[in-house]
Write a protein that binds this DNA or RNA. Sequence first.
DNA 1: CTAAATGCAAAGCATTTGCAAATAT
DNA 2: ATATTTGCAAATGCTTTGCATTTAG
Lengths: 132, 132
Amino acid sequence: MSHIKLLKTSDLKATPQRLCVLDTLENCGHATLEQIEKITKEKFPTLSLSTIYRNLNEMVEKDIISEVKIAKKPHYEIKKEKHIHLYCKSCDTIWDFQSDTNAFIDKIENEANCKILNDVIHFEILCTNCLK
Amino acid sequence: MSHIKLLKTSDLKATPQRLCVLDTLENCGHATLEQIEKITKEKFPTLSLSTIYRNLNEMVEKDIISEVKIAKKPHYEIKKEKHIHLYCKSCDTIWDFQSDTNAFIDKIENEANCKILNDVIHFEILCTNCLK
DNA sequence: CTAAATGCAAAGCATTTGCAAATAT
DNA sequence: ATATTTGCAAATGCTTTGCATTTAG
């Protein structure tokens, strides 16, 4: 879905500021607030920090983006298909990875005798490039 | 290992303030800074907030305790055997759970062609009690 | 045209720091 | 005896908020 539609569907106006933040996340995959501020201000020097804060919070609430508690500081990403995160400690990159977690989740549900609603699965890794 | 030994092994003096924080974590399992402040000050009214901050940071650095990025605010726990976290959204309790994750980790390593160094596995759940 | 969003400045919290006094070893 | 730790107060830094102005729809 286009970013414009994404915003409108959530009753948010498609302002240039919001589109700039979403473009940044689209390009980066994941970014911290500081990274978002730096990158967006290159293209949009008048964009204020409080607007970034407000928009990130609003878009998290509206479920357009999500906050990923990984690495040193929280990172933001546009919501997409379910995936796990691989964080390479060597090159400091966060990789999205899709894998079937159903068997593992079932195993935990059975062992712990609980109902799993949601999962957060992060691995600290050395990525393919860094292993060479 | 006793808390006193734990601290001394890490070149930290076994002050009553540190022991009080460790006792609190031992009793609670997991606690936020606010919870630690509240509980420790009951037993130790003169304990200052900056001491709590300093000690939590130092003990995380020395690997005596760890910060768990789960629920609304980070929680602290005394380091122990590897485990995953189950967070019951209904009763707001964090449960430690031990399960064999090797097969799952191997699967990811193979699929993603990477070396996994560490993992963070949290599930949001409804626990046995809350399911009744 | 109007409600929503923005930018700026100020306010509000959370966390850290400097330092003199106290304390563990 | 001494280096470490503590408590306090001040400083810092991050995040939110109030409000006049602008803007998307």
